[in-house]
């Protein structure tokens, strides 16, 4: 269950990075506006770090601190994912649109990879649980007979 949630979390993060790239390219809005807008969207409601970041910004915390605090406190990222997310936060808004887009695509690849690994783990453990369950059931059946 937890693995499934983690995969969903990473899936939404990949979607968020894709949307960030598109939004920066299309509207050229400031990060404050983009974060505010995305945190209100239903598909990103499960991304705790995005919602926290928006709340902190609304409280007057500067973007770099708001991003790093909220990513550091996120529930489902592991250490490596947090590190990459913090690096992405430092890239956001730091340069012109094309440069940001190129750099963000690298991080998109990283997170696609994390998602792939997470899904593989989910499948692996799902089959392990399935086999264990089947064996246990079969064992119990033999004992009962």
């Amino acid at each position: 269950m937890l693995l499934k949630k983690r995969s969903e979390y990473l899936e939404k993060t990949v979607l968020l990075i894709e949307c960030l790239i598109l939004e920066i390219e299309y509207s050229s809005e400031t990060l404050y506006e983009i974060i505010k807008c995305f945190s209100l969207r239903n598909e990103f409601k499960c991304l705790d770090y995005l919602l926290n970041c928006n709340s902190l910004i609304e409280e007057g915390v500067e973007y770099p601190n708001a991003w790093s605090d909220s990513v550091s406190n996120s529930k489902f990222f592991n250490k490596n994912e947090k590190e990459k997310m913090l690096q992405l936060g430092r890239i956001l808004g730091s340069s012109n649109m094309q440069t940001q887009k190129r750099k963000m695509k690298i991080y998109l690849e990283y997170f696609n990879n994390f998602l792939f690994v997470s899904k593989k783990a989910e499948e692996k453990y799902a089959s392990v649980f399935l086999y264990s369950g089947t064996l246990l059931g079969f064992g119990l059946f033999i004992i009962i007979i």
């Binding site: 400031t30 990060l31 404050y32 808004g93 340069s95 012109n96 940001q100």
Partner: peptide
Amino acid sequence: NRLCSYSVHTHH
């Protein structure tokens, strides 16, 4: 950075 609202792309 504050001047650009941490969004250089907006003001580039």
